[in-house]
């Protein structure tokens, strides 16, 4: 056990010694990872905020479902005298119980986040003043929207709007579905573009980081070639020969991840303060995420990516250049 601990200390000491021996290359690698993860973090902060805003916008996207009623059929077809007995040849007039049941069915769907029922009276009370002003009720003895009971359906995933609309139209009791195709398409498209562009940039940056770390470790291997050859002759295990280089890469990755996190944290806080003070209305409407909300996820991810890049870069270099 003591021997293993000694070996681990040795591996760490050598890993740090490697970094100190190749100060310039190590610095270059740290700087590259710092740059990559700074960009990654900045992208993440911007994208997360943008997605948060898009999500808020998505939450306001809704479709409105209207049902068949004796009244709307009456207006459409003046020949119908006995409105109560009339049933649409393809559609069905739902009872109140059935409307409630349909509401539950709609709410149970995955793409639906919320369902709000609007009775015909509520609809008139809401739209009357909007269209006719305060005196909207003058001239109308009855509610002109009688029978216009509806559900306002909010979506959890805007890209599923088409599927939901199709499903709603397959219900015999549904007369009409109001929806805005362009908003949903724009939001879905924007989300996709953001995701693809950011993924592309981040992949390129990571590839550059791995390449640079791999080169730094390669230089370390070249510098220590004498020591490595002695170790091999004395009978050092693969673990002991290779691990210092892996540790070197991982330490570089860790430092390279820590620096941008600290910089980004302070920059982000400053940016929020600036926007909140200068544009209070805009910031409250946009709903900017707090630094804690961003860094709660970004910190472990950045550190893991940094250490992961370091590990991968050094392993690639070792496999290529260090045959024990």
């Amino acid at each position: 056990m003591l021997r293993k601990i000694n070996s681990l200390f040795y591996v760490f000491r050598q890993g740090i010694a490697n970094i100190m021996h190749n100060k310039l290359f190590s610095l270059a690698s740290v700087a590259t990872i710092t740059a990559c993860l700074f960009l990654f973090g900045a992208f993440y902060a911007i994208i997360t905020n943008f997605q948060h805003m898009v999500m808020n916008a998505e939450k306001s996207v809704s479709v409105t479902v209207f049902f068949h009623s004796e009244y709307d059929l009456c207006y459409l077809n003046a020949n119908v005298e006995h409105r109560e007995d009339y049933v649409h040849p393809e559609g069905q007039i739902p009872s109140e119980v059935r409307i409630e049941e349909l509401g539950r069915e709609i709410a149970a769907r995955e793409e639906v986040s919320e369902v709000k029922f609007t009775s015909d009276e509520e609809a008139w009370a809401k739209f009357g003043p909007e269209y006719f002003g305060e005196d909207y009720a003058i001239g109308y003895e009855d509610n002109p929207l009688r029978g216009e009971n509806s559900y306002e359906v909010f979506l959890a995933d805007v890209s599923q709007q088409d599927a939901l609309v199709n499903w709603l139209y397959s219900i015999p009791e549904v007369r009409k579905v109001n929806f805005d195709e362009s908003t949903a398409n724009t939001l879905t498209g924007t989300n996709l573009i953001i995701a693809y562009v950011s993924a592309g940039i981040i992949i390129v940056l990571f590839a550059v980081s791995i390449f640079l770390i791999s080169n730094t470790v390669a230089v370390g291997i070249a510098v220590r070639s004498q020591e490595i050859s002695i170790m091999k002759y004395i009978g050092a295990t693969d673990f002991l020969v290779r691990s210092p280089f892996v540790v070197e890469g991982m330490i570089i990755g860790f430092i390279g991840a820590g620096i941008p996190l600290i910089i980004l944290f302070y920059m982000y806080q400053y940016a929020i303060e600036y926007v909140t003070l200068r544009f209070p209305t805009l910031s409250s409407r946009l709903g900017i995420l707090t630094a804690q909300e961003i860094f709660h996820f970004l910190t472990p991810v950045c550190l893991a990516i940094g250490v992961g890049i370091g590990f991968l870069g050094s392993v690639l270099s070792i496999r290529k250049r260090l045959r024990v």
């Binding site: 003591l2 021997r3 293993k4 000694n6 040795y10 170790m231 004395i234 009978g235 050092a236 002991l240």
Partner: peptide, 11 residues
Amino acid sequence: AFAQRILEVPT
């Protein structure tokens, strides 16, 4: 000492 260190001999 290096020759012993890499064979995990205690300090």
